[in-house]
């Protein structure tokens, strides 16, 4: 519950170990630098994909209504503006999927947390490779003659 999260820290009980706060609030997995930004991007891309998915289930459902209704809507997906939207979608899914695998490795691989920063840059590298493969082809489809 959100109202339980704000408040003062309980006075340290005798049994609990004393943990010194870090001098600068960076360098832990989720505070500052790669760890934090990967989390920010993961969250933003997750939400963006979610809202696309809601619309996408609805537009695909039109196949049950009539061929004409489905074709009318899906044809708008072939315009240059929507083509750029599809590009953005693949950009978002590409990062979310690769970083999702990084999260799974952090959680389940014995040295995952140790290498989380390196894995972030591997995610970025694979992401770029994926987009170098996808974007030119997509632009060919939406801007090229067909």
């Amino acid at each position: 519950m959100p109202d339980k999260t704000a408040g003062t820290l309980a006075t340290t009980s005798r049994r609990a170990p004393v943990i010194k706060p870090p001098k600068r609030l960076v360098g832990t997995v989720y505070r500052g630098r790669e760890g934090m930004w990967s989390w920010v991007l993961h969250r933003i891309t997750g939400v963006a994909i979610y809202f696309f998915l809601l619309v996408h289930i609805l537009d695909t459902s039109l196949v049950r209504l009539s061929p004409e209704a489905y074709n009318a809507v899906i044809n708008t997906y072939k315009t240059p503006i929507m083509g750029l939207g599809e590009t953005a979608l693949v950009v978002a899914i590409g990062f979310h999927a690769l970083n999702g695998l990084r999260i799974i490795l952090i959680d389940f691989w014995s040295v995952g947390a140790k290498y989380q920063r390196l894995m972030f840059w591997i995610v970025i590298a694979l992401w770029i490779v994926l987009l170098v493969g996808f974007v030119p082809r997509q632009f060919m489809h939406i801007f090229g003659a067909h």
Binding site: V63, P67, Y70, N71, Y77, K78, F134, Q138, H141, H146
Partner: peptide, 12 residues
Amino acid sequence: LVSGKGVNAIDF
């Protein structure tokens, strides 16, 4: 999206 004519191939 990628194979063949990509998004242009999609219809009923």
